[in-house]
Design a protein around this nucleic acid. Sequence first.
DNA 1: CACCTTCGGGATAACGTTATCGCGAGGATA
DNA 2: TATCCTCGCGATAACGTTATCCCGAAGGTG
Lengths: 351, 351
Amino acid sequence: MSPAGGGSGAAGRPKRPTMVDVAREAGVALRTVSRVVNDDPTVGPEYVAKVKAAIAALNFRPDERARQLRTGVTGTIGAAVRRIAEINPALAAIEQTARASGLTLLASSTDFDEARERDILLSMCRQRLDGIIVEPIGENHGYLEAELADGMPVVAMDRPMSGISVDCVMSDNAAGIGMAFHHLHQHGHRRVAYIGDSERVYSGRERAAAFRAALLAHGLPVDGLVHPGEITAERVGAALESVLSGPDPATALITGNTDTTLAVLRRLGPAAASRLGIVGFDEVPLADLLQPALTVVAQDTANIGRTAVELLRARIADPSRPAQRVVVPVAMRVRGSGEVAAPAASAVNAG
Amino acid sequence: MSPAGGGSGAAGRPKRPTMVDVAREAGVALRTVSRVVNDDPTVGPEYVAKVKAAIAALNFRPDERARQLRTGVTGTIGAAVRRIAEINPALAAIEQTARASGLTLLASSTDFDEARERDILLSMCRQRLDGIIVEPIGENHGYLEAELADGMPVVAMDRPMSGISVDCVMSDNAAGIGMAFHHLHQHGHRRVAYIGDSERVYSGRERAAAFRAALLAHGLPVDGLVHPGEITAERVGAALESVLSGPDPATALITGNTDTTLAVLRRLGPAAASRLGIVGFDEVPLADLLQPALTVVAQDTANIGRTAVELLRARIADPSRPAQRVVVPVAMRVRGSGEVAAPAASAVNAG
DNA sequence: CACCTTCGGGATAACGTTATCGCGAGGATA
DNA sequence: TATCCTCGCGATAACGTTATCCCGAAGGTG
């Protein structure tokens, strides 16, 4: 049995030097080492030199965990998003803004799974992160109540959280759907259909509702044109079938999110797609390379991510401030697919 | 001055209960609380009940940081990749594999920036993560030597690290380029050009070299067909110009990575692109929706990510094992763009 | 009945930092 | 020259856990 960390054998980590070792090596007090490490200006130059020499000699690097335990802050914020490792400009903006603020980012994928979301959020709380940004998935976040009461800062992104009151930043879904509809209407379309996410999801609910409102506002019938639901090839295919067949088929589509847009494009194929007016809600990768290039309502994702971090920082600074909701405007990106004119018959029909 | 954490005022965090508080509440010793929290079976049922009641009453949740400091392990591995928040199946696989192993993942973007990479890696070392996976960017990682000596496990992904000896998992670049070339050659192409990443980058070097080797192996001239360099619209455009003009223009292209592929497609436009044989190295999002759909040499990114975690876990378990290099096979994904036949003249020319 | 083992629980010392004191030396002031 | 600061450093107590002892009460055995 070697006393401590002999290099040989199995799991013998070499045992790193600590501030105590540095202090002994430098012949100063432990506290002085700490001061030097933290650039405390009240240390005499000769002491600084001695300590720095000892640090270099022993190859000492401070243990961030101990510092965090002692000071109470981790300098780290968590982000629980649906998927890291997929295009997510909001997450990119979060990372960048966090870095600019001197914060480390701990990002995890909830994978659209409510149980995973819960695990991740509670794990982040156990780690005493300085704050958490979450794209909520579940429909009940009451389990966070105790953490909120203990002062854990939480900000919701993309949709509000249910059961608890936290800051929230999200896109102007209603305005976006309205813009998309108006755009297609201007190009002569009177039969416009909506296919999107399930109304069990908050944003799906908002967007479907906004679409119905747009139809009503233009004095158009709603019959069979609104298709929220699961985003599977089958469901989307069935919705397309329903919408494009019959005596008065739709001449244009609004797709409620990226996955729906892609499912629709894959199902239609290039030829059919090019004959319809199509506006997607949310950006699609390579939208410019498709034929026709895809017109979308783009969310200001960078703004959303940045705002999320700022809301979080504000709450960290003042945990008692009232919860706030920020709505971020959206913008049309006109690329071609939304400007396909309605067939004359249909346009005349309702003109 | 409130004594400690009064709820009113500015930064007054409510002060969470600790194990000591739970012990007092339950009327047991601190150690017993710890045992209950860690499901130690040697605790009598009535004590378990008392402690659990106290935990519930005080709403106690253990501080993971303190546990980490005491036990020495963080249960967290770091991943320094080029971009989180962009499509990265390897990172997705890392996250999934890590989770399956009970490890938390801390992912950060190096953003192709050597200085940032260094900051991130050293920060991860300061946090005493259990291990680090890195897609190396810089050309000199000597600054990690001390950490490696102190037993910090590191695994390189996609390319080896320079200056230090660590485990590495990467794609079979040479075979992939060979396959791409062979594929185009089979479809009659004798003038095949390569446009790819700079040879300052390891993978760029390997792929350009493999392409030259393929030309030589087929007895074809190399003159002006190999274009490694920065991936900018200008540079790629110039390379295309050079390759497609002149008396004997290329009839097919191999693009050395995703960004190059996209730059080439954007520059060519759909009409010109559809007349060339094109095989991309590495997958492209929505490759199936392009026209023609894009044929690529796909890396087995899921395998790479999984292997990276496994190598890391093996090294954590046995820090003294010799460094290992794993090469992962690649595969053609035939979709159309690579099967455009060479124009008759050119095919006959060299037949 | 004495003794040895086992079992369940409690004091207490770590883990590696930072924060709170206090103290001695030096210069400024009366 | 005595006194009062100020400055610079050191001893020591936290931070919230887990790990190492140790000890008292059972229970079994000679």
